[in-house]
């Protein structure tokens, strides 16, 4: 059993939780994820690790209550326990394998969409902790959905916020902001990491491609075990089938088959005959999200 040490509502429907899981906290790295199962009858929900505290033995997760399982998770309070909390899963971010001196010569830009700010945060923080600065574009639909802005500003060089409706920061999409920075402000980037809804990652990758900037995305397909034994999470990367849970979740965004990934994410959307899902998951028809939800997806359709 895994105790919830802290629960905070970041913005309506988006929750942050610190969960006591010493083994996970001791080995977690940026880019990895956990799987949470609330109770006996719950399903296994993949969530990207937002932060970890090795001393306290806690792992921070951020999730949006969008489907049956994440709505259930949101009902848990401080002091209560999740039955299962397993991780860290997947490979750590690619830059962790790189030589820090070489990395210091590179200009890195992070792009987050919606709740994608949660998995982006530990990476930006890692750069900061290792004496490097990076820029961040944070995109949300509207001001009320912006999370972790202060935290991000504390560890990033520049933070640019965009909102679809112009209620805060620059009006427009993250891709427009990227173009503006590169075309008008003379910014040069060697490396882009984009995490958010799949549609955002697709367009981010399409936008960076003509500039020849290496772009990493974090895939969030359907998952069951998260350990490589079922293949539910398979994605096509440069004509090869990969399992996102063991080979990823981060991949070269210029090689990902995003259309296939979007199609596969929607696999259970039209599921019939599951009364519970139909009754208790009113959002599922309009939501782009895979069943159960992974924190990567943002407040975006």
């Amino acid at each position: 059993m895994f105790k919830i040490i802290k629960k905070k509502v970041l913005v309506p429907n988006i929750y942050l939780m610190d969960v006591e899981a010493p083994r996970v906290a001791s080995t977690a790295m940026p880019g990895q994820f956990v799987i949470v199962k609330t109770d006996e009858k719950g399903e296994r929900v993949p969530l990207t690790i937002c932060d970890y505290d090795r001393e306290r033995g806690t792992v921070t997760i951020v999730f949006q209550a969008v489907g049956y399982s994440t709505i259930e998770m949101a009902k848990y309070e401080e002091g209560q326990y999740f039955q299962d909390f397993v991780g860290p899963l997947g490979k750590p971010s690619e830059f962790l394998n790189e030589d820090i001196q070489e990395l210091k010569n590179k200009k890195v830009l992070f792009i987050s969409g919606g709740v994608g700010a949660a998995p982006v945060y530990p990476q930006v923080k890692w750069f900061h902790d290792n004496g490097m600065k990076s820029d961040v574009i944070m995109g949300v639909r509207t001001k009320e959905l912006l999370i972790l802005e202060d935290e991000m500003r504390a560890v990033a060089d520049n933070v640019y916020v965009t909102t679809d409706d112009g209620s805060y920061g620059t009006k427009g999409l993250v891709t427009e902001k990227f173009k503006e920075l590169v075309e008008n402000q003379g910014k040069k980037y060697d490396y882009v990491v984009a995490i958010g809804p799949i549609i955002m990652m697709k367009y981010a990758a399409l936008t960076t491609k003509p500039y020849g900037i290496k772009t990493i995305v974090s895939m969030n397909p359907l998952m069951v075990d998260g350990t490589g034994m079922c293949g539910a999470c398979r994605v096509t990367i440069g004509n090869e089938t990969k399992f996102a849970c063991v080979d990823g979740p981060e991949f070269d965004g210029h090689l990902v088959d995003f259309d296939e990934a979007m199609r596969r994410q929607a696999m259970y959307k039209t599921e019939e005959g599951r009364e519970k899902l139909k009754m208790e998951e009113p959002n599922q028809d309009k939501h782009h999200h895979h069943h159960g939800g992974c924190g990567c997806c943002g407040g975006e359709e």
Binding site: K41, E43, V224, M229, C230, G231, E271, K276, H291
Partner: peptide, 25 residues
């Protein structure tokens, strides 16, 4: 599906029962 996924959903996650949250196609 891989047989492992299909069987894991049904056996381990008990997707054949409507009182369990994991769906199966």
């Amino acid at each position: 599906f891989a047989a492992n996924e299909f069987l894991t959903r049904v056996n381990l996650m008990k997707a054949y029962r409507t009182d369990y949250a994991t769906p199966v196609k």
